[in-house]
Write a protein that binds this DNA or RNA. Sequence first.
DNA 1: GATTTATAATTGCAAATGCATATTATTCTG
DNA 2: CAGAATAATATGCATTTGCAATTATAAATC
Lengths: 163, 163
Amino acid sequence: MNDTRKPETEKPEPLPRLGEIGLSNYAPYLMNRIMGRYNADLRQEMTELGLTTPKMRALAVLSVIDALPISELAVYAVVEQSTLSRALDQLASDNMVRRDADPNDSRVTRIGITDAGRATLDRLWPTMARSYAQMFKGIPEEERQAFVTTLQKVLKNIRKHDF
Amino acid sequence: MNDTRKPETEKPEPLPRLGEIGLSNYAPYLMNRIMGRYNADLRQEMTELGLTTPKMRALAVLSVIDALPISELAVYAVVEQSTLSRALDQLASDNMVRRDADPNDSRVTRIGITDAGRATLDRLWPTMARSYAQMFKGIPEEERQAFVTTLQKVLKNIRKHDF
DNA sequence: GATTTATAATTGCAAATGCATATTATTCTG
DNA sequence: CAGAATAATATGCATTTGCAATTATAAATC
């Protein structure tokens, strides 16, 4: 088989440009667009609840994994550490979270979510769930599951931490 | 078959919470994590080129679709219009883009990318391509293609504009 | 065709952000 | 175990951001 007639899929050039790939075939672009809309959809409800994106993300992560050190929470929540530090100031003054000293390492502050924090997130959750449902409307469950599986692989490929 | 023992997958409650789904099964969370890393990976190179995220995104979109009105560019680039307006000030003063009056509607300013703008994006592109390749390392081409197809469906589901 | 309404882009301003640094605590090295 | 290197968090400061208001133009309505 001497196939010289179909070079399209055989890495024909050293580095195809974005213009050649096209925005709508470039996964990072699509993910950015999607997350931009998702975050915009939550914005109004968040504002009414006195939340910003960093505050919301901190609460969301803590609702799943409580008592995290700030530095780990920053990774999970995808927020700069200094930004998170200040977001936690606000959350703490609103009694949404607690700052607890780590008993083994006194450099570490572990963040705990309070009942009030959970209650606030519960009020936001229907909006998040609605936006999530809208994303996958008309997409078969099997396809959604495969999509999530690929997302997990991609995250594993590029993340810097083990979580 | 009276199966009362496995309610886990039979939508047992009206609205499962994030804690029940788990962060690593929640697609928006995974996409946020992934895009956070992707953007962080580009940051250093961008800084060296004098670019911010809004400036980079504007150039990237314009490299594919030139001469867009600012309001459309804002949607494509996923940047607030006022932020984009100021990003374009900087790009224009660096001769990366041009502001051209629309001949049919004098409210509209169309943005054109210059050779210098393309050149700057060309210098960033290898970093973008490397990060992109890293994402899909070890993932079969067929799976990547299916993933992009689902992304396109999701975007179509939630976008507010027709593009 | 004058008046109201809608759209595109810019700008003022307060708040949020991120980088670099400071502070405190821990671990490593010789 | 003293001193240096590393780590976790907080903070000072300049820049960036986003909302709201402004300006300018176009479209719709009466």
